[in-house]
Design a protein around this nucleic acid. Structure first.
Lengths: 357, 357
DNA sequence: TCTTTTTTCGGGTACGTACCCGTACTTAAA
DNA sequence: TTTAAGTACGGGTACGTACCCGAAAAAAGA
């Protein structure tokens, strides 16, 4: 523990002021692009800043300016599946790290079964004088409206979990959906050399823009591209919009009876648990089963062997990074990569413990 | 952007002082356990601190106390394999984040082929008045000596990449070696139903404590446990201590000729590239090949299909977390989990791009 | 030339905490 | 009782930056 910080006299506004022969206040004006400085001195000071590579002391800066930034988070609540608990945790963790910089956070959780809750919260946020928003655009049209309003109010926003192409978001933090579908294809082919594979989409509403479909495209892309003469996999597919376990079981069961040679099943989201439940009851554990997300039920089926692979999308990390990106951009003025893809984790019984929570 | 930070008057030493009817200086003495305060007032103040849940403003604190902490990093240089470039990057990234808190960092890179360079740097560090060390205990005995010296000097240290059981380290940040071996076993079995599997250790010196052996144990544990009557995998094994490509190729080739029914090869570290090079030349691409680490050459073989799986250990994250853990413990006074296992990433051609660098 | 307005700048205080220094008060020694 | 040696505490300044306010200088108007 030394005293006398090394850079003490070399950097800092004081040194700049000294070199430029002006006061600290003037330097400060230049740094913050405020008016009241002649063009000549402004340039002189800027040169010196460039010269010594001035980096403002964020601690002192945030301390002196009692600025408070308000950020909003708009994501689904965790009632339907507990998937969204993880991003919440990540957001919370990020918040704990940055709140000492004078950040205030408000969380708005909407109901995945009720678009109007999204819209309602969106309005509240727009009226709430926020400096940035992290949101999951689960309802594409509603999200479009909201982000358009943000843009006109110059409120930066960050997408997490799924993207809305064309929007002027600060960044997207989430998985590359197409590629994660391809990965599922590769995993299937590693264990299944030929035969039929069943692809299952389970979601209350599946419209043309639904992100499940992009995973499906990726999956088909891989399987079709790697079909060789001595190794052909054929894809069967069903969309299931009634999402309770019973309905899912019946739907899947029907296909399996019609196609006895199905060797593997790929479920495009965390609902894989419903399929696992069915397979387990029918003792069809030999089927390779692949799905998404480390929710508790899925982990159970993975551990006991019904599910072979889960694909993880780092949900907590998404929440964490989503808020951090906003912070870095708005408070620290850093440039941000617009696309921040999460690693697509392959999770098995043997490594699941290191990915939990 | 609001002014008037919300907590302004509610927390802070000033408020504590007001409530206790003492001066700020006295409160400060209590907070830092300095002497010069009567037991009565000390208790009164501590109660108030508890009461309002006082959390010191780290910004102001670090600003006011011009304390500088010096940390040292002692890891291999990146000459032998470029694996160690990643932890370096991680350390650097952590440093960029914390240097504004008055942290100084010195990096010492030793030669993996020369124990004496480790020892030499160790001495320098011990003489250097550091407040903490992050080290990779590549040479177990030398590391033991060093950490013992650190303990007697009360210098906290953190292990990265591999652990030294029994040491009083602040934490271990790295993979769970045994479990990562098990994972390799599972991946192999997913593609290979029965036959022989070749396990290859490649390292200049392989003593009883070598961490490669713990991966081997994990691998054997999985394979043996899952051997069933209709699906038996037999493990062949070689240790290779001459590490150039040619020697490795010859050694592996000899085994493959002797055992024509080897269906898969598991290399316990990043040297898998040497085996891949051999297999590729001999056009034995149908063999399943699994190894470790996302170094450039390995990625090449993974992409073209010679290597099927790489197991990643998040090397950059290890460096990042290693330094961060030290920072959190020494500067922020946080309690640290002694075991910080990295996720064991399964990497294939299809998801490798999201794990790079 | 003398005002008035505008531009340009410096002094000084504040942010929340750390810590030096000085003082009043207590206790023990003379 | 006087003196010395603590003990308990408060005042005040500093850290590096932000920003208010007022003053000097320059420009514009008269």
């Amino acid at each position: 523990m030394k005293k006398e910080r090394a850079e003490g006299q070399l950097s800092g506004v004081k040194e700049i002021a000294r070199r430029a022969g002006v006061s600290i206040a003037t330097v400060d004006r230049v740094i913050h692009n405020r008016k009241g400085v002649s063009e000549a001195t402004r340039q002189r000071i800027n040169e010196i800043i460039e010269d010594i590579g001035f980096q403002p002391n964020i601690l002192a800066s945030r301390l002196a300016s009692k600025k408070t930034n308000r950020f909003a988070v708009l994501i689904p609540n965790a009632s339907e599946t507990d998937y969204w608990e993880a991003p919440r945790k990540g957001v919370e963790r990020a918040y704990q790290e940055i709140k000492q910089y004078g950040i205030q956070l408000e969380q708005f959780l909407f109901d995945l079964n009720d678009k109007t809750t999204f819209a309602k919260h969106a309005t509240t946020i727009l009226d709430g004088d926020f400096d940035g928003v992290v949101l999951a655009p689960s309802f594409v049209n509603e999200a479009r409206k909201f982000t358009a309003a943000c843009e006109s109010r110059k409120i930066p926003y960050v997408f997490v979990n799924s993207d809305v192409p064309g929007a002027e978001s600060l960044a997207y933090v989430g998985p590359h959906l197409f590629k994660s579908g391809r990965l599922a294809g590769q995993l299937i082919r590693f264990g299944v050399k030929s035969g039929k594979v069943l692809l299952v989409n389970i979601s209350r509403e599946i419209d043309a823009y639904h992100h499940l479909l992009r995973k499906e495209e990726g999956f088909r892309s891989y399987i079709n591209r790697t079909n060789k003469k001595n190794s052909v996999i054929h894809i069967e597919k069903i969309d299931i919009t009634v999402t309770n376990d019973k309905a899912v079981g019946e739907a899947v069961g029907a296909v399996l009876e019609a196609h006895a040679d199905v060797a593997a099943i790929f479920v495009t989201n965390s609902r894989v648990r419903s399929v696992a439940k069915y397979l387990r009851k029918r003792r069809k554990n030999k089927l390779t089963l692949i799905g998404y997300d480390l929710i508790e039920e899925n982990i159970g089926y993975l551990t006991e062997g019904t599910i072979d692979f889960l694909i993880g999308q780092k949900p907590e990390e998404q929440g964490y990074l989503g808020l951090m990106v906003l912070f870095q951009a708005v408070v620290m003025g850093k440039k941000i990569d617009k696309e921040q893809y999460m690693p697509i984790d392959i999770i098995t019984r043997e490594n699941v413990e290191f990915y939990k929570n």
